[in-house]
Design a protein around this nucleic acid. Structure first.
Lengths: 134, 134
DNA sequence: CTTGAACCTCTAGCGACTAGAGAGATTACA
DNA sequence: TGTAATCTCTCTAGTCGCTAGAGGTTCAAG
């Protein structure tokens, strides 16, 4: 049996966050003490480790809830959620790479030295020079 | 003179968002009509276009506020803000690429077909197989 | 039995908006 | 000039994934 603090220390998830997850129905303590404090068993520990790892991978809590709720033998659903998230991550990477290219271009337009024409502000205000992706 | 709706249509920034920006002090209408409606001039339009483009590049509103407030001839500050943001974007890309690699590995561990051992749930719960970056 | 740490619930805040209520202003057209 | 349609006003609350704090209770060690 673990207290919420022990669970927190073992998983690296902060105490208020665990309670927050409980509010969302993602994890429920096995029981309570007479004094109303939460007590967890090994299953609770595993569940929280699962949530934490999935979060570290960037899955939104809603997707994690789906993973928890669905039939663990249903490969199709599991696969769908993971694949969707992978596609999402790839989209975000693509977008960030565009931003990176444009920002790099803007920063290079000025060497930061004094007495030099600085184009950064103008470049930020002027959409015309961009690829038009945004 | 533009109404808030005209400004919205010309810049692609939604009306409530313009008012939200005003609450943060990023843009102020040139004046108001007798009936208390906002009216903007060309400077307001340019200012909003600037904000929109900077946002599209991912700059947080706080950074945009800095850019607006600072002396436009001060290259150093401008350069610093843009460079900081570029570094931030690069960090986020690096992190997402790690996630992508791991997710791809996890998804590949299961072909989604029936009657097949699916490792996705196990892989999500088990941090041990990861590079340990998260 | 006392102390101090850990725990409880509840509320509010972050960033960057978005949605909606309910009321008032403006504009286009007849 | 009237009226109807559209626009705008302020205000509040919701989104996501937490985090921080107030004010009070319980637990475990010495």
């Amino acid at each position: 049996m673990f207290s919420i603090g022990q669970l927190s220390r073992r998983t690296g998830v902060k105490v208020p966050t665990i309670r927050y997850y409980e509010g969302l129905g993602l994890i429920v303590p096995e029981g309570r003490t007479e004094g109303n404090q939460r007590r967890y068993d090994k299953a609770g520990l595993d569940r929280l480790a699962f949530i934490r790892h999935a979060r570290a991978l960037g899955l939104p809590l809603e997707a994690i809830r789906e993973l928890i709720m669905l039939d663990p033998t249903s490969h199709a659903d599991t696969h769908r959620i993971a694949t969707t998230h992978l596609a999402d991550v790839r989209k975000r990477i693509a977008r960030l790479r565009q931003l990176e290219a444009e920002l790099a271009r803007i920063v290079q337009s000025c060497d930061g030295g004094p007495g030099h024409e600085c184009d950064i502000l103008a470049a930020l205000g002027d959409h015309g020079k961009c690829d038009g992706a945004h």
